[in-house]
Simulated assay, not measured.
Amino acid sequence: MTNHRKPKIVVLGGGTGMPVLLRGLKKYPIDLSTIVTVADDGGSTGRLRKDIETPAPGDIRNVIAALSNVDDELHELFQHRFNVSNGLSGHSLGNIVLVAMSSITGSFYTAVKEVSDMFNVKGKIYPIVNESVTLHAEMNDGTIVSGESQIPMKNKKIKRVFLTPNNLSPIPEVVEAILHADLVVVSPGSLYTSILPNLIINDVGKALQDTKAKRVYVCNIMTQNGETNDYDAADHVQAIYNHIGTNSLDSIIVHNQLIRGDILEIYRKQQSSPVTYDLEKLSQLGLSVIEEDILDYESHPMVRHNTKRLAEMLFHLALNKK
């Protein structure tokens, strides 16, 4: 890669893990693209989707907020959640803005671009598809659970996830971004309900296999009750491979330090435990393993990735693309 060109980094994901990663990356001199799931159906997003046939705005809203460059008051306004005893209660203003702009422009993707411009967003934000979708999970016992928010509630082992309508296509810019990236990052987040809904879209998995970019998975630090109970890092990767094929990742970033006992006790009550890793198992999956202390104790009382450390690591990975 020549020195005069900014490295192109693409981040795929959704949920709470993705914005944490992006807040660090936006400070670097990079050409950044984010690809975000639109399968959420809980909370404000779910209520809006029941009333208006729209891609889920919630994860997109959080990414816009993370990548915005506006004053604190405007940022707070966009993320404001109404707490009133009427139909607005629980709704996020940002969700309403995105749905309103989608109604005005006739396209959710266009709405995302317009609102991104309004908030002076770093890089480009792509909803994975430009239509309303529903996530389903087939459990190991053969039952099918429909709805992103319902899947973890069943607390059954998940065999696979899939989307309807069938044969969805990503917006063309998504595939182009992956194919022309220097680094593709699969962000931390809910494996089956935030990460895989992006990867299982037609052509996205193929683009991941065809790209010349480095492909890195930032592994979750803790398991998630109802999705990844007792999963180690290799189990997370194997779930991705089972859905889109084995030649889709090059490396994995794992947390390699002990977690404070008082924090572990809180998670234990939620039936969540640290994600362990076995170097030999990960090597057998074809991965190089990057072991680092990636936990942020300072800015959050719970387990969160260290956005500054991760951003620095990812920036150097992109710069050193062979």
Results as ranks from 00 to 15, higher is better:
Pro165Lys: 00
Lys124Arg: 14
Gly226Phe: 09
Met153Asn: 12
Asn86Ala: 03
Gly46Leu: 09
Leu179Asp: 09
Val185Asn: 01
Ile294Glu: 06
Leu196Pro: 14
Val237Gln: 01
Val115Lys: 09
Val145Gly: 13
Ile96Val: 15
Thr164Cys: 04
Asn166Pro: 13
Gln284Gly: 05
Val161Pro: 15
His80Glu: 10
Tyr231Cys: 01
Pro7Glu: 00
Ala207Ser: 13
Asp296Ser: 07
Val145Asp: 13
Ala233Ser: 07
Ile128Ala: 02
Thr228Lys: 00
Ser103His: 11
Leu319Thr: 00
Ser187His: 00
Ser149Leu: 06
Gly14Tyr: 01
Tyr277His: 14
Gly147Val: 06
Lys113Phe: 06
Gly106Glu: 08
Asn167Met: 04
Gly205Ile: 05
Thr143Asn: 14
Asp182Met: 02
Ser299Gln: 13
Gln238Pro: 11
His75Val: 00
Leu25Asn: 04
Ile125Leu: 08
Thr307Trp: 07
His300Tyr: 15
Ile178Cys: 02
Ala213Arg: 02
Leu98Asp: 12
Asp31Ile: 00
His4Asp: 14
Leu249Gln: 03
Ala207Arg: 02
Tyr231Trp: 05
His80Arg: 11
Asn62Trp: 08
Gln238Ala: 07
Ile35His: 01
Asp203His: 11
Gly106Trp: 07
Asp230Phe: 11
His316Arg: 07
Arg47Lys: 13
Ser283Ile: 00
Gly261Ser: 12
Val289Lys: 02
Val84Ile: 13
Thr246Asn: 14
Leu88Tyr: 14
Asn95Arg: 05
Lys159Asn: 14
His80Pro: 13
Glu114Val: 12
Ser283Tyr: 11
Ala181Arg: 00
Ser299Leu: 13
Thr110Leu: 15
Gly90Lys: 04
His136Thr: 00
Gly42Lys: 02
Ser194His: 05
Leu314His: 03
Glu53Ala: 09
Ser283Cys: 08
Leu32Gly: 04
Tyr231Lys: 01
Leu93Trp: 12
His305Asp: 08
Thr37His: 04
Thr193Leu: 04
Glu292Phe: 03
Pro7Thr: 00
Val11Tyr: 02
Tyr192Trp: 06
Lys159Ala: 10
Gly261Val: 03
Thr45Lys: 05
Glu312Val: 00
His80Ala: 11
Thr307Ile: 00
Val204Glu: 05
Tyr109Glu: 11
Val237Ile: 08
Ile128Arg: 01
Gln224Asn: 09
Ile30Pro: 15
Leu179Met: 07
His300Glu: 12
Ala318Val: 03
Leu279His: 10
Gly58Gln: 03
Ser116Tyr: 13
Ser283Gln: 11
Asp232Thr: 02
Leu74Lys: 13
Glu312Ala: 07
Ile252Met: 01
Val84Asn: 07
Asn3Leu: 14
Ser116Pro: 15
Lys8Phe: 06
Met313Leu: 15
Leu249Trp: 02
His91Cys: 08
Ile104Asp: 12
Asn130Tyr: 04
Asn95Trp: 10
Lys122Leu: 09
Leu179Val: 03
Gly286Asp: 06
Glu131Pro: 11
Leu264Lys: 06
Ala137His: 10
